[in-house]
Design a protein around this nucleic acid. Structure first.
Length: 438
RNA sequence: GCCGGGGUGUGGUAGCGGUUAUCCCUGGGGACUGUGGAUCCCUAGACCUGGGUUCAAAUCCCAGCCCCGGCCCCA
């Protein structure tokens, strides 16, 4: 019986893993240089961690289960909630801001399609302890530094849920719960439902108009325009925060599009929110590669109210876009080839294994594991792109040498074990240096 | 949750009512018994699953599973 992969999961073959490893290393390197440290949290958590404030949308997609003693658990649908939980559990006394990054798999029960899977990877960062414009700008700039390192062309959309919240607060008949509902409707783009809800509760028509005007705002000059029209109060805290952020983004030379319609599906965002979209058209409908913003989760989990800012990349979507120029072709190594019947010629086998062990201190080396003929061993080496074969048979043993064959040129020579090791070590060392310098 | 298009050896495919199920790639062996990449030969290996229609199903119908994509939402 053939067992199929679970729907929405993937196997990664060596070639794909090489590419992902390159991407991951580039992103890690940048995070480290910006002063962020790596953390890791559990793959599953108490389900309440996610149900508490992540929003309705994520609940119906969650993998929930009970363990053998009946605990209510869930596979993480995202990682931010875990990071904050971990911070509160372990590190309340840490100097702020705490700057962390993480890379891990997440799980959501959705219909798989291009760039969307049930198990997917997020690479994210969090600044815990600050949601200042400086923190927001740094974080967005960091995201773009990573995109640049991956040669991904993308555009940034920035919004601020504070502006909408301020306006909703002014709409007196609405309570907190209704605010959340309206936010969700805005995020979904369900304009008609927003109007209906607000009219039902009896919100003034002018306020409804203002709200609709606000969420449609797009583009850089619209902020001033909105203020001139009195839609945004001149002394709005959210407005001045957003303006400060935009100024800093200019300093970081990150281009942006203002989009106040971004409300985001996770309910915990409280301030700046942003989304980044790939612009090359390689992702079809799922072109959002990054999302994030400022939030206040800590209080919900029983801690003090810690302002934080974070984002998460959809790593798989980046992988879809990322073309690797170099390092694409697997660089072959060395094969040690014992010649003769391994079952009979124990001495040859031993000599070959000893040779392989020495070479493995310096170069990728493999040795026949299938008792193949000389011919078949070379064929395998050829198919693997190996560069050298070290052949050891009865003749070599008797003469105290090995035969080193250059699989690219086809030339070969006999030399001592030490000389052969030294020769290969030198060859591969210089190759590694070449690779690092490019 | 909704809507399209698909599942044939390891991978890529042809066949679309009756064939010994095609070709390329791959594994093993050989021509060439201590030398890979070319050529040729032998050999291994497949019709997603379950029902139905039919004398006869890979082929037609239905359901499920899976894949690819779109809507919605997200990363």
């Amino acid at each position: 019986m053939r067992i199929e992969r679970a729907r929405g999961t993937r196997d990664f073959l060596p070639e794909e893993m090489r590419k992902r490893r390159i991407m991951e290393e580039r992103m890690r390197a940048i995070a480290e240089r910006w002063g962020y440290e790596e953390i890791r949290t559990p793959t599953f958590e108490r389900a309440e961690l996610f149900t508490l404030k992540s929003g309705q949308e994520i609940l119906k997609e969650m993998y929930e289960f009970a363990d053998k003693s009946g605990r209510h658990l869930a596979l993480r649908p995202e990682i931010t909630a875990s990071v904050i939980r971990m911070y509160l559990n372990e590190l309340k006394m840490a100097p702020k801001p705490t700057k962390w990054y993480y890379f891990g798999n997440c799980f959501r029960y959705e219909e798989p399609q291009k760039g969307r899977f049930r198990e997917f990877w997020q690479f994210g960062t969090e600044i815990i302890g600050s949601d200042s414009p400086e923190a927001q700008a740094e974080l967005i700039a960091l995201a773009f530094a990573m995109l640049t390192a991956l040669d991904v062309q993308a555009e940034l959309h920035v919004g601020h849920v504070g502006l909408i919240r301020e306006l909703l607060r002014a709409a007196t008949p609405l309570n907190e719960e209704q605010h959340a509902i309206v936010m969700r409707l805005i995020d979904k783009g369900e304009r008609a439902a927003v109007i209906e809800l607000m009219e039902d509760v009896g919100v003034e028509q002018s306020l409804i108009d203002d709200l609709l005007y606000l969420i449609e705002l797009k583009g850089e000059d619209t902020l001033q325009e909105a203020r001139d029209r009195g839609v945004i109060a001149a002394k709005s805290a959210a407005l001045s925060e957003l303006q400060a952020l935009l100024e800093l983004l200019a300093v970081y030379r990150v281009a942006y599009t203002l989009n106040l319609g971004i409300a985001r599906g996770l309910d915990y965002y409280t301030g700046m929110v942003f989304e980044i979209y790939e612009v090359g058209g390689k992702l079809g409908a799922q072109n959002q590669v990054c999302g994030g913003g400022s939030y206040r989760l800590a209080k919900l989990f029983g801690g003090e109210d810690i302002p934080s800012t974070g984002f998460a990349f959809g790593f798989d979507r980046l992988a879809e876009i990322f073309e690797r120029a170099e390092g694409d072709v697997r660089q072959g190594g060395v094969v040690v080839v014992p010649i003769g019947d391994k079952n009979v010629d124990r001495a040859i086998t031993s000599a070959a294994i000893e040779m392989a062990s020495r070479l493995r201190e310096y170069v990728p080396t493999h040795i026949d594991l299938m008792n193949r003929s000389l011919k078949a061993q070379l064929k395998y080496a050829n198919a693997r792109n190996d560069l050298f074969a070290v052949m050891i048979g009865a003749n070599e043993l008797q003469a105290g040498v090995v035969t080193l064959r250059d699989l690219v040129t086809g030339s070969q020579e006999q030399l001592s074990v030490d000389a052969c090791v030294e020769h290969l070590r030198a060859r591969f060392e210089s190759r590694l240096n070449d690779k690092n310098s490019t």
